[in-house]
Simulated scan of single mutants.
Amino acid sequence: MRGVFLDTLTMKLEELDTSALEKSLDRWDFYETTAPEEIAARINEADVVISNKVVLDRAAIDGAPQLKLICVCATGTNNVDLDAAKARNIAVRNVQGYAGASVPQHTLALILALATRWHDYHRDVTAGRWTRSPIFCLLDHPVMELAGKNLGIIGYGDLGQKVAQLGRALDMNVLVAESFVGHRQADRIPLQQLLAESDVISLHCPLSEQTENLVDKDFLAAMKPGALLINTARGGLVDEPALADALRSGHLGGAALDVLSAEPPPVDHPLLAKDIPNLIITPHNAWISRESRQRLLDGVVKNIEEWKKGEMG
């Protein structure tokens, strides 16, 4: 059987152990990137296709007569036309849980960065402001002490729970928003209450019809003045122009995002403007520790091996 990996650059495979993947099928073709016009030719004779972000729409799927398995090298499957795959009886498998250590670590780093304003102070030091200071330190940017503050979690799956655990280790009080699917639980509170009481809000919910642009003008206005917003989930959760306005107005104390609605973002993206205060943007790399990427790749291999057992058994 033949396999094709369409976007290995998203995984930086040279840093990982790929031996199990290479042994999983008779032949592999690896491509660092694949443009839309290259997809058809590359998967035409493939039995198995791996894609992280390359879109496999109905035309691509229907144009691959031998295709039997699509492995999404990620958690989300929104880049695959699931209806088209089902119509062809093509299995689609994703990988979950691989970033359970990396994403909470990154989230905590963003919270700490915003609270301590270390990015602003580092910029001041490199600009020579400390050298010119008449006193021994700089006190220009307000620092939030996290102990005793309220950490609001929206989306309480594995990642949300682990971020909550890290917050408690800093002596923060954890508040959890009610589920969007209507499950009432005694230890959760209405979203509006969470917005009003949280000093830090961290998003960990999936992107859906219910949560798209969840963080809009009204959401931001309802947040506690001076609060911090963290998003390591999905860019589409946030109305980005509204967030820019809330930061410029001073209503929010800061925001840190690892995801944007368009990735990579265009040069005129509203959150890339240079006049937005206390905003940190990292390039969707909360998940990219070597250990996390290895777990992801191992998960893909496991999916292939389990599929082969079902095919041959």
Rank of each mutant, 00 (worst) to 15 (best):
G3H: 09
G3K: 04
L6I: 06
T8Y: 07
M11D: 12
M11S: 13
L21P: 07
E22W: 13
S24W: 10
D29Q: 12
E32G: 15
E37S: 13
E38Q: 14
I39Q: 00
A46I: 01
A46M: 01
D47C: 08
D47H: 14
D47I: 09
D47L: 08
S51P: 11
N52G: 14
N52S: 14
D57F: 00
I61A: 02
I61F: 03
A64P: 07
P65E: 04
L67K: 08
V72P: 06
A74C: 03
G76N: 06
D81C: 00
D83F: 01
D83I: 06
A85H: 02
A85Q: 01
N89M: 01
N94D: 06
V95I: 13
Q96D: 13
A99N: 05
G100Q: 09
G100R: 11
S102E: 02
Q105T: 15
H106A: 15
H106L: 04
L108K: 04
A109Y: 06
D120S: 12
V125Y: 08
T126C: 11
G128S: 06
R129I: 12
T131V: 11
I135F: 11
D140C: 09
H141V: 00
M144N: 09
A147R: 10
G152P: 04
L159S: 08
Q161V: 09
K162I: 10
K162R: 15
Q165H: 14
G167I: 09
G167L: 09
R168H: 12
D171P: 11
M172N: 05
N173L: 06
V176S: 04
V176D: 02
V176K: 13
F180E: 13
R184F: 15
Q185H: 12
R188V: 04
R188A: 02
R188W: 01
Q193A: 11
Q193K: 13
L194I: 09
D199H: 13
V200Y: 03
I201F: 01
C205H: 09
C205M: 11
L207T: 09
Q210L: 15
A222C: 13
G226T: 06
I230F: 07
A233G: 13
R234S: 07
G235E: 01
L237C: 05
A242G: 05
A242M: 06
A242K: 02
L243W: 00
S249N: 07
G250P: 08
H251L: 06
L252N: 00
G254N: 01
G254H: 00
A255Y: 00
D258P: 12
L260N: 05
L260H: 07
S261T: 14
S261N: 15
A262M: 11
H269D: 09
P270D: 07
L272C: 05
L272E: 05
K274R: 15
I276S: 03
I280N: 07
I281P: 10
I281F: 02
R290T: 15
L296V: 08
G299V: 02
N303R: 04
G310Y: 13
E311S: 10
E311L: 14
